[in-house]
Design a protein around this nucleic acid. Structure first.
Length: 563
RNA sequence: GCGCCCGUAGCUCAGCCGGAUAGAGCAUCGGCCUUCUAAGCCGGCGGUCGAAGGUUCGAGUCCUUCCGGGCGCGCCA
């Protein structure tokens, strides 16, 4: 149940009776706990139009609202806030059933992760991959049909360079590390050797026109590279599967038709031999327009055309209601152009195309992130280091665990910490990558949430009963800690809906951290096993464990029973 | 030059259609393990929310200008 929506609904009737039916109740969590659990700020904004004092209107709203079963107390506070305390019976209802309520059915296509192949996955691939994955899982939990589309870069100039270079030196690459090395060499040659650069471009044309030898070579490199990506996804606990891969190459056959269609619709202008679309939305102050180039003067297509073909496929073939692109903020202009182009071409009318950007990764110095060697940091190295550090800590804290359990726990905590460090940030602009922050295991980190979960498992082990044995109903909430914990548990639904609406997983992280903290305070203050309120407190513990496990699961983070 | 994003405590970050005394973690200082896991709990220290104007009953949040940072801008993706 969505408490916030329920309260807003009830208050809406009160606003209507008070003559302010069009005013939003503006319900949110109370900013100050002393005044209750939720507050509605709408009376203050509406009062002026009605010629009433804000407190007077707030009182009229309260008088006209039916609080039966939802609020234990409701009062006007401050300049005209409506503050209310949620009734225990409502919390008992909320905790009786932990099922998530579905949103209206929708088909959502999600483009995320989408690494360029031929290179190992680096830390900068982390954001798209795990943000997208968390959103995909949350949407599925809310009943949406999610179609994952891993739009890997498997068709661009990097393969021209790679294949041209390997043709020249007569070598072949069967391991990713080799590919990586050869690609670096090839990139260097492009900068120094114009003749090589020309050959590399020629190879791209061969590839795109279906030259058999080139395609065979390309296929081998792609397979090596994709196997590596899949290994990273599995190490990360990301839900992407090989069947979710639909890379740039999948649209090769559509490109000519898409461009022909744009031409037929009168959108194409030739400029210096390239086929361009000039859109009014991108006209500058000086009257010049930044063009969208859909075909180069040498006949090759670019990512605008590929992305447009992909957009059309997602809208028309997959039948999406929404298409979410979880892509670096540096692509913002590209997506504005892409969506404008789709609109001009009449593709995907009625479909919501959304670019959800995230910031560029910076180093500790605030400059774009690079290692000393000028490269990136391998994602697998980061995960390994996190696991090693967590392993040392697990061993120090709990030396009685056997080796296999220690390894498993270390993996869950280490990988969880890395993911949580990234997912818990709402940075639509740049963010600072810090090796130490990523690997931190104290405070507001995944291990804190996992620790709360493990404590609950331990509690039930001590009680000698399975977690499921704690059943409703919830008893009286005798202490402030119990009330606060029950309230936080009851807010899970509204949190998931908020994540779905904003496409921002950090709201779920904040929620789970607050939940774990509420549980820790409850646990420190309220004895469970040796208490008259044992049943009720066990139920609070059970729901805490379930909600933590479910929430962490949506973030792609594992829980452990002991740590 | 034009455009987009950002600037909150020493550091890393929250702050939900503008709403009460701006919140966490880390760091630092102090208290709490003979009772359910101290990876924890409680408390102290720490911010003129980049600056100046404006709108508003009310601005970290909206508008304008300036300063600072990042990114993007016709044949890479």
């Amino acid at each position: 149940m969505n408490l916030k929506a329920l309260i807003a609904d009830r208050l809406a009737a009160g606003f209507a009776r008070a003559g302010a039916g069009d005013a939003p109740a503006a319900v949110g969590p109370a900013t100050r706990a002393e005044f209750g659990d939720y507050q509605a700020n709408g009376a203050m904004g509406a009062a002026k139009r009605l010629g009433l004092g804000p407190r007077e209107l707030a009182q009229r709203v309260i008088d006209g609202t039916d609080f039966a079963g939802i609020a234990a107390r409701c009062a006007v506070t401050g300049p005209g806030f409506i503050s209310l305390t949620v009734a225990d019976e409502l919390l008992a209802d909320a905790l009786a059933d932990r099922r998530i309520q579905p949103l209206p059915a929708a088909k959502v296509v999600m483009d995320y992760s989408s690494p360029n192949l031929a290179k190992e996955m680096q830390v900068h691939h982390l954001r798209s991959t795990i943000i997208g994955d968390a959103i995909a899982r949350v949407l599925e939990a809310l009943g949406c049909e999610v179609i994952r589309q891993n739009h890997v870069g498997d068709w661009g100039a990097q393969f021209g360079r790679l294949v041209a270079h390997l043709n020249d030196c007569g070598e072949d690459a069967v391991h990713l590390a080799d590919l990586e090395r050869f690609y670096t060499q090839a990139s260097a040659r492009v900068d120094e050797d114009p003749a090589f650069a020309a050959r590399a471009r020629r190879v791209v044309v061969d590839l795109h026109t279906g030259d058999a030898a080139t395609l065979a070579r390309w296929r081998r490199y792609i397979d090596v590279s994709l196997a590596h990506c899949q290994a990273v996804y599995e190490a990360l606990g990301v839900s992407l599967r090989p069947s979710d891969v639909r890379g740039e190459s999948a649209y090769n056959g559509d490109l000519a038709a898409v461009v022909a269609d744009l031409a037929a619709k009168g959108l194409i202008t030739e400029s210096d031999g390239a086929l361009c679309v000039f859109l009014d939305e991108f006209k500058g102050k000086d009257g010049s327009t930044v063009p969208v180039i859909v075909r180069k003067s040498d006949g090759a297509y670019l990512y605008h055309s590929t992305d447009l073909a992909a957009l059309r496929y997602r809208a028309e073939t997959l039948g999406a209601d929404r298409v979410l692109y979880i892509v670096d903020a540096r692509q913002s202009l590209h997506f504005r152009q892409l969506f404008a182009l789709a609109k001009a071409a009449g593709y995907g009318a009625g479909v919501s195309f959304e670019h959800h950007p995230f910031g560029t990764m910076l180093g500790a110095d605030g400059r774009p992130f690079k290692t000393r060697r000028g490269g990136g940091t391998r994602l697998l190295d980061l995960l390994d280091e996190a696991t090693v550090r967590a392993g040392r800590l697990v061993q120090a804290k709990n030396p009685t665990l056997d080796a296999a359990t220690t390894d498993r726990v270390a993996r869950a905590l280490g990988v969880g910490a890395v993911k949580y460090a990234d997912l818990s940030k709402n940075r639509t602009s740049d963010y600072v990558f810090s090796w130490d922050d990523m690997l931190s295991l104290e405070g507001n980190t995944a291990p804190y949430l996992q620790y709360a979960y493990a404590r609950i498992q331990s509690l039930f082990a001590k009680a000698g009963i399975p977690v499921e044995a704690a059943e409703p109903p919830l008893g009286p909430l005798a202490t402030a800690e119990e009330h606060a914990l029950a309230l936080q548990l009851a807010r899970f639904q509204e949190t998931l809906e908020q994540v779905a609406a904003t496409v921002m997983p950090h709201h779920l992280c904040s929620y789970l951290y607050d939940l774990a903290a509420a549980f820790m305070r409850f646990y420190e203050r309220c004895p469970v096993l040796d208490s008259d309120l044992r049943n009720s407190r066990l139920l609070l513990s059970r729901r805490s464990a379930e909600t933590l496990a479910t929430g962490l699961g949506l973030l792609g983070i594992d829980t452990v029973d002991r740590m």
